[in-house]
Design a binder for these strands. Structure first.
Lengths: 115, 115
DNA sequence: CCAATATGCAACCTGGAGGTTGCTTAAGGT
DNA sequence: ACCTTAAGCAACCTCCAGGTTGCATATTGG
């Protein structure tokens, strides 16, 4: 399973990078923060309070949507956005595997030094 | 503690975004992959196998270093880079808090629907 | 001391991220 | 029907990330 973990880490690297990149922006993190509660919000609602334009917010939402962390559905005259936990669960899992890896490595190195 | 979690989430958002951004690049993720093992590598060693220039790799390393996920020390004529787990532990923690938040939200919503 | 190796520094190029403005189109409310 | 509100589309601007090339500097081995 250790080899499976390693290979899946490498295999998923390309899939993880875009998700990390999407989270690498304060505006987008704050948009997500509003959506973590599970409720849907329209673009106008998500724009409220921000100093940015509605179009700017729209672009950010498209970025988030492109990596699947958010899902928008046109409903009537407004399009409602909803949080989708899957992609972030995956990078959380990635970080879990990685941390497991470095913890083992560090304890090996420590043991080697103490020897 | 729930309120503390929320406020620290907001307070740390600005601190997390740059780390996520630094991880949002495949080249940098693969550099990190070589460093998870705990061993130090020189820039030349890290450049080996890559299709990129040494200078490109250097720039990526500086990005990683600027968010503290990697630490470089000049040793003799080469500068050795070493992985530092702290920043990634923090975003892992962030994702943990967030997932806790959305899980609670989803169960509340589910309960509401079932009611 | 000299040649090779490892890195640093700086200028430069290019594409795309992040933002704005202006106009169009679709839905709702009355 | 009409006015308002929500959103989409498209052109445009600016700036910086990511990469390259060329040259300068520091260490090391013999």
């Amino acid at each position: 399973m250790s080899s499976r973990s390693r290979s899946s880490l490498a295999a998923r690297r390309e899939a993880h990078a875009p998700v990390f990149a999407a989270l690498g922006d304060e505006t987008r993190l704050s948009l997500l923060a509003k959506l973590y509660g599970g409720h849907r919000f329209s673009i106008s609602q998500l724009t409220e309070g921000s100093k940015l334009t509605r179009q700017a917010i729209t672009k950010h939402l498209r970025v988030l949507e492109s990596v699947g962390v958010v899902h928008g559905v046109r409903t009537g005259r407004e399009s409602l956005f909803e949080f989708d936990p899957k992609p972030m669960r995956e990078i959380k899992e990635y970080l879990d595997l990685v941390s497991e890896q470095w913890d083992q490595a560090l304890s090996r190195l420590k043991l080697f030094v103490e020897d």
